[in-house]
């Protein structure tokens, strides 16, 4: 079995990415899905927004030297909507993002993130706005996202964050890599399957 890694506290400087409904085609354009492994995904997040056709850098938070090395990403509503591509969280994670804090997340995206050990946590509109403003004014601000106590701390502030209890428990207990957990019950799986009439082709 793989080593258990518990994700309880993640922290560092942050980068704000403003806007609602940022879809996974924007996070990683489809052409990069052609690569057979995730190895190079860290080079590509928001590629078409960060570089013009000639490869010249455009204005974008992910290009801004002020935010280099950030490990917390602040977003607004419905982040990660659209395609189920896991390349999107992989791109962010391999770029260096270790926690995403937003107003809300699309379902498949949040599930994909959790299974990689990348927490997606929510705060209210005003709180996210405050944190984005804080980073923009002082990019050196350090944030600590505590999954266990469901809080985020920076400067002298402490803000409550939320995430589904099942995700919280998976991350903090180190069960976010679910394959081993699921495979342990294979006998029970077979029993459940055997009771489903279609599994036997409706033979009786």
């Amino acid at each position: 079995m793989t080593e258990i890694v518990k994700i309880v506290k993640v922290g560092g400087t942050a980068v704000p990415m403003r806007g609602n409904d940022i879809d996974t085609d924007r996070i990683i354009p489809a052409r990069y899905l052609k690569e057979v492994t995730f190895a190079r995904m860290g080079d590509y997040p928001f590629f078409d927004e960060r570089f013009d056709a000639s490869g010249k850098k455009k204005d974008h938070p992910f290009n801004d030297p002020e935010y280099q090395g950030a490990s917390v990403l602040f977003v607004n509503k419905n982040f990660g909507c659209g395609s189920s591509r896991e390349h999107a969280p992989q791109a962010l994670y391999r770029f260096g993002i270790k926690a995403i804090v937003g107003e809300s997340f699309a379902a498949i995206f949040a599930g994909n993130c959790t299974m990689m050990g990348l927490p997606t946590v929510t705060a209210t509109h005003d709180e996210v706005a405050l944190m984005m403003k804080t980073v923009e004014e002082n990019p050196k601000t350090k944030f600590t996202v505590d999954i266990e106590t469901k809080t985020i701390c920076f400067d002298d502030k402490r803000i409550a964050i939320d995430l589904p209890e099942t995700y919280r428990s998976a991350l903090t207990s180190g069960c976010w890599d679910s394959t081993a957990l699921l495979r342990a019950n294979l006998d029970q799986v077979k029993k459940t399957a055997a009771k489903l009439p279609y599994i036997g082709g409706f033979a009786n």
Binding site: S84, R85, E86, P89, I108, G111, N112, M115, M116, T166, A170, D177, S178, T179, L181, L182, R183, N185, L186, V189, A193
Partner: peptide, 15 residues
């Protein structure tokens, strides 16, 4: 997502 594809391949189940 891809990790879930792995889960289904390996266990025919999802969390």
């Amino acid at each position: 997502g891809t990790s879930q594809v792995r889960d289904v391949l390996a266990t025919q189940t999802l969390a």
